[in-house]
Design a protein around this nucleic acid. Structure first.
Lengths: 262, 262
DNA sequence: CCCAATTTGTTCGTATGTATA
DNA sequence: TTATACATACGAACAAATTGG
């Protein structure tokens, strides 16, 4: 019996697999994934968790360090440790990378970035084709939801997003709820379906604008456009969203910052 | 007087700016930047460094942790801590991201990747134009070296690289040395000019192939190609290389993995 | 406005485990 | 086997931020 009440944690086995701080990390991750602690929730204090797990405070901190580094948790000095919420600028722009053309004149990292204006042009249900099934690791023919969004910057359409998710994973997803979401799409995934997008794999290529792209983005058929195929991943690198972004790069760029390990 | 001889480190001030482990980190970084410890060199042991700096071993380890995370240092248990050398696969592919088309069928991260065959088609000296000057943060008209490379995968040309560096920064760079480099270009920067590329900023866009691109890559004029503008950065985000990669994405993709903080 | 309690952040030191030569 | 170096684990003390009284 702990005086502070045990916060849903089980004492770690004396000799589990790997270092102790990784066992502690897995235990915390399990609690977040299970929804026992939801996004925005405060975790028990470090000393309380360490006590419940039966590890030292330093070991527990090392476990939390890793989860903070992967954006699963957020620490605030004097307040506590929280399950990360993905609804602010930082997370929006972590996956939205289109900017006005500007050849390295300004400090790209410091410039004020404009929020895209999002317009949903289609919301349909259907069955996964081969490419969608491969990307989402489901079977061809499985139920999927497809959303087509048009993103505009400064009032001009720049990006067409075709978003595909598995119906199985996103059970209660309705068009109404999708259109009226208060924050970003990834925030909706998190709050409504308990799915946290941690990373994404992307493949980019140049293609000629087809009829539909030309119509939605207002460019001439055959003009070069940038096509970005993205698979968004959650815990365990499980794919949860397949998105094809078609970008008119006539006066905008697709921006990325490479660093650190892959 | 230390019994082990001081390895070029000065004792930290009692109340410098910021946390002690960041001061220690800056001190180590300074030593690497200055060339006092060259790529591949082993640093003194953690306890020796901690002793020389007058900090505890835990604090020193936290400083090293950060530098390891940024690929400045590499730790090897039982051997020591070394200044990172940028000549292996990991670093080559950290900045080379072109792969055969494959719509997320395989596990992209685990697949064997093919080395590009590099062919230098031009090596010229000239004066920086406005775009080059802005990217390299030099003055228009300053001396630059331009290199044009053709990269082939499976014998087919896929990428045209136009590389521009400041003549001031790369003093002794000769065509002969460049062509006969034993490893990657970034490894040459490091070994011959003491410049370590840590990160890169990129901007991608789709364009129509021009005459020169069509000739070098063997595509029809007007075909959509992917143009990636990259500025490679060293310590302090100082730009050291401006590179325009023109990629034939007819059967290849430009790949990236997004995660963590920007 | 200040004080006290709580929580994370930093620093210290020690002991032990594991990999390398 | 021994010595060295990094890796893990523990615990203590104090600093800094936050909150509520």
């Amino acid at each position: 019996m702990n005086a502070t009440s045990t916060p849903g944690l089980k004492r770690l086995a004396p000799s589990g697999p790997g270092p102790l701080y990784r066992q502690a990390r897995r235990e915390l991750q399990r609690l977040v994934e299970s929804g026992r602690y939801a996004p925005g929730d405060a975790l028990p204090s470090e000393s309380a968790i360490a006590g419940a797990l039966g590890v030292s405070i330093g070991t527990l901190r090392k476990a939390v360090d890793e989860l903070v580094h992967e954006h699963v948790l957020v620490r605030r000095q004097g307040k506590g440790t929280f399950v990360a919420v993905h609804n602010d600028d930082r997370f929006l722009f972590q996956f939205f990378h289109v900017e006005p053309r500007d050849d390295f004149n300004g400090e790209a990292e410091l410039r004020e970035r404009e929020y895209p204006q999002v317009e949903c042009v289609a919301f349909t249900r259907g069955r996964a084709d081969d490419a969608e099934a491969a990307a989402l690791r489901i079977r061809p023919g499985d139920a999927v939801v497809r959303v087509d969004n048009r993103l505009s910057l400064s009032g001009r359409p720049v990006v067409h997003d075709r978003i595909v998710v598995a119906g199985m994973t996103f059970k209660g997803l309705s068009e109404k709820r999708f259109r009226e979401r208060p924050s970003t799409i990834y925030n909706l995934y998190q709050t409504d379906h308990g799915i946290t997008v941690l990373r994404a794999r992307e493949r980019a290529r140049a293609t000629a604008a087809g009829r539909e792209t030309a119509r939605i983005l207002g460019v001439a058929i055959g003009r070069p456009v940038l096509e970005v195929h993205r698979v968004a991943l959650t815990f365990g690198d499980k794919p949860v969203e397949y998105r094809i972004s078609t970008i008119n790069t006539a006066s905008h760029d697709y921006v990325s910052l490479l660093s650190k390990r892959a």
